[in-house]
Write a protein that binds this DNA or RNA. Sequence first.
RNA 1: GGUUCCGUAGCUCAGUUGGAUAGAGCAACAGCCUUCUAAGCUGUGGGUCGCGCGUUCGAGCCGCGCCGGAAUCACCA
Length: 595
Amino acid sequence: MEIVLKEKIKEAVKIIYNSEVKDDLIQIQETRKDFKGDFTLVVFPLLRFSKNTPEKTGETIGQYLKDNFTAVSGFNVIKGFLNLEISDAWWVEYFKKIAAEKTHLENCKVSHPETILVEYSSPNTNKPLHLGHIRNNLLGFSLYRILSGCGHRVIKTNIVNDRGIHICKSMLAWQKFGNGETPESSGMKGDHLVGKYYVLFEKNYKEQVEKLIQNGIDATEAKNSATLMKETREMLLKWETGDEEIVSLWKMMNSWVYVGFDETYKKLGVDFDKIYYESDTYKVGKDIVLRALKEKILYRNEDNSVWADLTPDGLDQKLLLRSDGTAVYMTQDLGTAVDRYKEFNFDKNIYVVGNEQNYHFQVLKALLKRIGYNWADGLIHFSYGMVELPEGRMKSREGTIVDADDLIKEMQLTAMEVSLELGKLSDFSDEEKEDIFRKIGMGALKYYILKVDPRKNMTFNPAESIDFNGNTGPFIQYTYTRIKSVFRKAEHLGINTGQISFSGTKTGPKEIELIKLLRKFSETVSAAATSYSPALIANYCYDLSREYNQFYHDFSILGEAEEEIRNFRMVLSKVTSEIIYTGMWLLGIEMPERM
RNA sequence: GGUUCCGUAGCUCAGUUGGAUAGAGCAACAGCCUUCUAAGCUGUGGGUCGCGCGUUCGAGCCGCGCCGGAAUCACCA
């Protein structure tokens, strides 16, 4: 509509003022709720052509549009704003098109689909997933749904940081203090068990360091020379040389972790098309580094460590191989990127990684380009903000880490309590109830996290828990189930709910408001795809739900005596439910049929 | 100190390429269930958009300078 209006306005200016107008001078926006009208033309930029007051110019153009464009049924001018009223008939015609859509994502399809890798989750195998990972997983998965919804070929990948010094820490602690404990023997989830040994390592290591410092040794020196650290480094070296005992220990402990992760992923409803393991890719990275070293792109330090000098790019020196020859994080990320490009020839490779690693990705990109990989332009760091607690950042030392499994469980329990209190599900089987509690609890959690602009840090208050009223997932789910309920009743009454025909000649302002909002769905999804922001869709779903709830409250649907009006309201409700469903689907949020 | 990001109601957050009187929810208070689900709807109060200057017909949004906060600048990942 805006496009057509623009053309008409250009035409108007040409005929009335005999001037050609550039597109960007014609600013059309939706009319604010406080004024009468649907679209508003900002006339200030056109004064140079009219050489007249804003009011007079608005009047003149408005009159022209009303006379020459049937969709415009009226207008008013306030200050420099020309408010155009669009006829109900036009809106209804528009709505008919939306109602006929098969998926509601048709208009979002891009003209040139790309191959896009989305890397998300990226856990370390030394501890279980926490709240930060939840944000990561939800963002990554939603991004996948949104981009593929827009027609891109999207590959979900995960890089598992399954090697490195931190992994050796939990291995060493288990070797020393574990007494052969396994997930079976302890009844602990595998990732939590391994995490327990990581914590144990840190505790003992800290004690050693403190003892050394008390004996008068300098702090950095103490950290380096503590027996546990020395042993860990030896272990890493052994691991890199393929020591059988270490490798089999590593395999065993990692396998425990994977079982645990899979369980959490399943509960979160996320999955992957291809999983990379750092233990595979770090070698590729090492080769790349050594080759680049030969080509003098990198340099070797006196102590045998290998570095890149990125000062010409405005960055620093970056270590790529330690003096003992082992690889660091950056080394393997080089390998992973190259591997992926070889395999998928991607247009974009999106890394869903926290903003604490902004520098890392700047370096990664610069480094790849330096080595000669021009496709590195397609690397995108989708940098999201940290999740903080009311008292600040989560700290393992202070035991304030919010565990993913615990949180999920808690959300579902809360959903259960609230549901039981409201007592609307008494005629359901336990199994069905469980399913509904799960959907509501996860819906609340997911929405809570996804509604926030991903780039921003967000605060999570576990004490207040997550609300189920207002701008929340359950509110949107509730709206959806209300519509479902209407249709159940309609069927019960023997009203045909399949093909509902309507002409829409009798519509009220509330219905038109809803149509306007429904119309904005595809542009919202497109915006979410280009700006990588599921939050746009979340907030849209909320706006739509709120608008529908008002409509639902003010008007009876099935109780409407006039069939013409009733049918129109039914279709309006149906399309609303479809769009809410689709929007929430893009966020990875499941919808219950009743709640 | 360098770089990057963030400062909007008591709290959590929205706010399109700069447009009209800055919006929601939570919390507080006051109403609305004989009806398709009250996890809802309606109303009231609540703001120096961190501060200042500049660009502009017009700035929460753009530029510069401060103030406050976060991240990062590891032979950690």
